[in-house]
Design a protein around this nucleic acid. Structure first.
Lengths: 118, 118
DNA sequence: ACAAGTACTTACCCTAAAGTATGTATCTAT
DNA sequence: ATAGATACATACTTTAGGGTAAGTACTTGT
């Protein structure tokens, strides 16, 4: 699962950055390549693992579970597993995750305006 | 200036991601380590290069100019240089950059709430 | 017996982004 | 003459994140 090295200049700088800028803190949570896309998908309702995999073009399974795990650790996403075979696992937004919706929408709105400008 | 390789799987995936999620598009513009922090600093008014350097803890000069350049290319920041010695250069938000303020504030607000939860 | 379906896991590799360190130009003041 | 101030530039190294490919577990249907 690609362990994260805690004691590097890079991560120390991140810590400091959080103090300097709350926006940076959020970016570290929902920023990056895939997380916003996953959250975006889950905003339209709970989805199974496979559904997410199909809905998000070109994401690898490794990236998908890796980020789903991180999102769970950050209490943004809830995993629900039915003890059946074949497995049936659904992911959905937590309350906190849902509280992100207006933020995501604000960003998306701005994004659309900006895309038009080019 | 670390040229960007256009034709890689990674960047192709990014392109696709943009179509799948407008939020992702914005993240590619203002996401990352330092850009939100730089923008945050400039929201309180224009600043000189040196001021930014001092205001942002632990940023390297390389990162600072690199991102300032990218922000200029994305028309988020305007550079103004007075032809004097020693140089006097100020950076400020463009109209588009200023239009980000509510978005940044929404993110920041959410961030503060979320920090309290831990 | 084995293929299929679902949700992962794991090992290895590659690259873009970030860090480190040093150098440059130009004029002013001492 | 040389040090100081300001705003960069550039070469080299490191690392975190992402990509590729293959394997695992467990049961049902044929």
């Amino acid at each position: 699962m690609t362990a994260i090295k805690e004691s590097s200049t890079r991560n120390e700088n991140k810590e400091i950055a959080i103090n300097a800028c709350p926006v940076s803190y959020v970016m570290n949570k929902i920023g990056g390549h895939w997380k916003p896309i996953i959250l975006y998908q889950l905003m339209s309702g709970p989805k199974r693992y496979n559904e997410l995999n199909k809905a998000i073009p070109n994401i690898t399974e490794k990236m998908l579970i890796q980020h789903l795990k991180q999102l769970q650790e950050d209490d943004l996403v809830i995993r629900k597993s039915e003890p059946v075979v074949p497995p049936h696992v659904t992911y959905k937004l937590s309350k906190t995750g849902e509280s992100l919706t207006p933020v995501m929408e604000a960003i998306a709105t701005w994004g659309f305006k900006f895309i038009d400008k080019n």
